[in-house]
């Protein structure tokens, strides 16, 4: 269950925004990078049409995160995207913060009405699967356990892929 930030200090909002921006950046590049080497994510992305745009947005005014499928690959577009074929809106900063820090998993986020989704809901489920597959490459099990209904078993090269993501995939955006 999520722990809620209840103390409101001056500057909290700014701090939250910065945190969310940072994590958006990590998530954005990590998913794009992982979609090249992780076969199960690759498969999900393959089923999306070329030019498919995904946007995550914190209401009412950002931060934002965007991906687009270009040349068969999922490209991270930073906050540049103005339109999305699939838009995941976080209803407020706190919700985004809880989901991104990550204290609350995506499924729970949906259940608690913290996000609303605009677009093809089937694609939203596909995206959720991608993120569920990605999480164990980003976080150790004790964190993943809280976020997902079950920890996906990764048999292959988890540690290397974690290192690859943090040392190459995310910093260099490849």
């Amino acid at each position: 269950m999520g722990r809620h930030a209840t103390i409101v200090l001056p500057g909290t909002m700014v701090l939250k925004k910065i945190t969310i921006k940072t994590i958006f950046f990590i998530l954005g590049r990590a998913l794009s990078s992982a979609s090249k080497f992780e076969p199960r994510i690759r498969k999900e992305v393959a089923s999306w049409e070329e030019g498919f745009k995904i946007k995550m947005f914190v209401l009412p005014s950002g931060p934002a995160l965007g991906w687009e499928k270009q040349h068969g690959k999922l490209q991270y577009l930073g906050s540049k995207l103005d339109h999305g074929d699939l838009i995941v809106n976080f209803k407020n900063l706190t919700s985004a913060f809880l989901l991104m820090t990550p204290q609350v998993g995506l499924a729970q986020g949906f259940a608690e009405h913290r996000v609303n989704v605009v677009g093809d809901l089937n694609k939203a489920i596909s995206l959720t699967r991608c993120i569920s597959i990605l999480l164990p490459y980003l976080y150790p099990d004790f964190i993943v356990k809280r976020l997902l209904k079950e920890i996906p078993q990764i048999k292959y090269n988890r540690l290397y892929r974690m290192l690859y993501l943090y040392l190459i995939g995310i910093p260099l955006g490849i």
């Binding site: 090249k36 076969p39 690759r42 498969k43 393959a46 040349h71 068969g72 690959k73």
Partner: peptide, 11 residues
Amino acid sequence: RANVIPNNMAG
């Protein structure tokens, strides 16, 4: 057949 998706990605 696992090659189809990566080959398509690589063009």
